[in-house]
Design a binder for these strands. Sequence first.
DNA 1: ATGAAAGCGCTAACAC
DNA 2: GTGTTAGCGCTTTCAT
Lengths: 355, 355
Amino acid sequence: MVDKAQDNSGEQSTLARSKTTVEVRTLADLARIAGVSAGTVSRALAGKSLVNTETRERIQKLAREYGFRPNQMASKLRSRRTGVIGVVIPLGHDKRQHVSDPFFLTLLGALADELTESGYDLMLSRAIPDHTSDWLERMTGSGMVDGVIVIGQSDQFDTIERVAANYRPMVVWGQYRTGQTHCVVGTDNAAGGRMAARKLIDGGARRLAFLGSTTGIEIAIRFEGARQEAARAGIGITHIPVHLADEEMADEVAAALGYGSGSEYDGIIAASDLIAMGALRVLFENGHQVPVEVQVIGFDDLPLSAQTHPPLTTIRQEIHAGARAMVERLKALIDNSEAESLVMEPRVVTRASTR
Amino acid sequence: MVDKAQDNSGEQSTLARSKTTVEVRTLADLARIAGVSAGTVSRALAGKSLVNTETRERIQKLAREYGFRPNQMASKLRSRRTGVIGVVIPLGHDKRQHVSDPFFLTLLGALADELTESGYDLMLSRAIPDHTSDWLERMTGSGMVDGVIVIGQSDQFDTIERVAANYRPMVVWGQYRTGQTHCVVGTDNAAGGRMAARKLIDGGARRLAFLGSTTGIEIAIRFEGARQEAARAGIGITHIPVHLADEEMADEVAAALGYGSGSEYDGIIAASDLIAMGALRVLFENGHQVPVEVQVIGFDDLPLSAQTHPPLTTIRQEIHAGARAMVERLKALIDNSEAESLVMEPRVVTRASTR
DNA sequence: ATGAAAGCGCTAACAC
DNA sequence: GTGTTAGCGCTTTCAT
């Protein structure tokens, strides 16, 4: 039921027979039907200037009728622009499918919106950096994308720098280091860490714990900021590396916090809101009052963080503004303009998990 | 600093000068350097069978040294397979950027994992169906993907059916309707709705509310299931359409639940865990005890739902199994095999928000 | 304003 | 085994 009335050309009115039975797969096919050349069809469909309005409309109508769409692969190959942005999430440490990290996912959603807005498609690649460390080049060197966005540096700072030396249209979400080559957009993690510690200390906390693995540079810097701020108040911070695997995290947090070994904290700085939520739950299950006995502060300010119990005080990262900034910079780089890195100021969002 | 030593060919040892100064952009370039033909390079790089092991390794080494990667656009055009799966999320109703819906995002993450595993790249497209309703064809007809996965039917069932009539490699997450053309993977939403109502009624609830907009077919069916089950117990359900926009949702829920107008419910069936979390929070803020005064049950069983306070009882959808099933079916369809729809049984996950 | 022709960079017959 | 030859379907000069 597909190949009816195939090879009898030029005879009957094209309008008379069912459009769906004729295979129109190429510009040439349509050109034949329209009685013009492939070049003209190309121009007409692209809405180009120098085509007679009448022919253009006729061709567009025909294309619609036959459900014809130009093959993008051919178009992209010829025109040397793909209209696609690669988004890659390196899963350096912590093999567990990081992709479900709500922060990354939220950022991804925002990026999808911004890119779509700018007429780009988004090609997602979850990369697992291994010894070859060509996870990034696979994207940048593929000829399939006009530019690349990397969500999170993980522990791959050096790889990213190396690639950036030869590949310009790339923007990375993460931590800025003075003198770096690649264009990065992110939060001032040191400041965020400091704010978090300050907030808890101001609320009266004296026995602080920092929850989160510092393998990734961003979190390492958050910890460092918190540590410094606490030191200025003559307070130490215990670093407790917990991982993000959703289900088990709570158990890990429970074990880490040492309930009921007696070694308790009165202030918990979580490396992310997700970890903070785990902590909140463990605290509750162990009968600890938040924020009366223990204060908890998160990092990110995910939409969900207002919904926790108690609502979570956290260090806000501007995800949507960040996504917009990244896309804007990437477009500049694609146009061969310059683009400066952007370090955004975090800000304390006070809710009910701190005093 | 880019065009040094460009046009002096064939003279010096290729090993003597810095590899990075020579532009090796095509198979032909590399072929020249290796002293073979482009065809051989192509075969060698593809690890094809009939190439001398020695030459193959030499060519691969050269490719690595010069950082050469074959242009995918050209490759895909010629070989007529793209290695890319399009994932599209229709935003039919509820324009607010649905992309941040945690359920979709979780499913997306799982799909990314499965597809990567199978060697496919993932092209993400957030589609806003408008009057033209060609949002799907833009993907299926583009020649850019080997197959398409649609996450959620939204209110676009008919459009999907129409496209499915002419485009085979497509799998959709959503609700199954007997006799439909397109291959769908999803949960038995009617059963899920019934289970939810039953659970609350068994716990003693008598004044039920269903929270969620029923514009999308899946949620409409959940509501219908709940309604029927409740009817069998001689109980009615008030339908309260709330939307998913993160921030405002809680307010909307608060208003909807009529606090403190006095018209209170003792059982709340949420169309999704996200809505349930909003309800939990509103309930808490209004001083209502969950589950003693009011029971709440969600739908989805997102990882986060174990972290709420109290931990959320919910109807579990098998997201990861679903993702795997979708990819498996899609691969079958790409291979021109058949693929049957899959309706998965939901299951009550009892935690602490119900009696 | 339109047609003809030359590729974009690669793969796959087909030769040898 | 490897070289040669034709394209994949489109865009874009260059003519006319």
